[in-house]
């Protein structure tokens, strides 16, 4: 077969991808905790989803197993559905309360 192993896969240990994805995920978690704007919180959730995506892709590419990349594809489809419904809910909340501040939307909180 006419294939060469990509340079990144030869030179970068798989562990570095684990660290990179962990850092991205931790930044996403911090963002969810720090911000109060519902839209920004939503974007930080996307950040966490993407951290998982890059990790799945890295393992899939290193182990030459296409199932991981199929899974990433399904994660993207679910994320697209989630974003459309979530932003619809946020727009509706804004129409009712004129705010996207999550601290003011605490009626369901014990």
């Amino acid at each position: 077969m006419d294939q060469t192993i990509p340079e990144v896969i030869r030179t970068v240990p798989l562990q570095y991808y684990v660290f990179f994805a962990s850092a991205l995920f931790a930044i996403g978690v911090t963002g969810v905790l720090v911000r109060r704007n519902a839209i920004i919180i939503f974007m930080c959730v996307e950040l966490m989803l993407n951290a998982v995506n890059i990790l799945l892709t890295a393992f899939s590419a290193y182990r030459a197993d296409p199932n991981g990349q199929i899974f990433v594809f399904f994660i993207m489809a679910v994320a697209a559905a989630e974003v459309s419904v979530g932003l619809g809910i946020i727009v509706m909340i804004y129409r009712n309360f004129q705010t996207t501040d999550v601290n003011l939307l605490s009626r369901l909180k014990w």
């Binding site: 077969m1 294939q3 060469t4 192993i5 990509p6 896969i9 030869r10 240990p13 798989l14 562990q15 684990v18 660290f19 962990s22 393992f59 899939s60 590419a61 290193y62 182990r63 030459a64 197993d65 296409p66 990349q69």
Partner: peptide, 20 residues
């Protein structure tokens, strides 16, 4: 937790760069 974990890297004999 991941510091001492060494995930098995690529396998040169069965590696396939075209799966993506």
């Amino acid at each position: 937790a991941m510091r001492n974990v060494n995930p098995v890297g690529y396998d040169p004999t069965s590696f396939d760069s075209q799966i993506g």
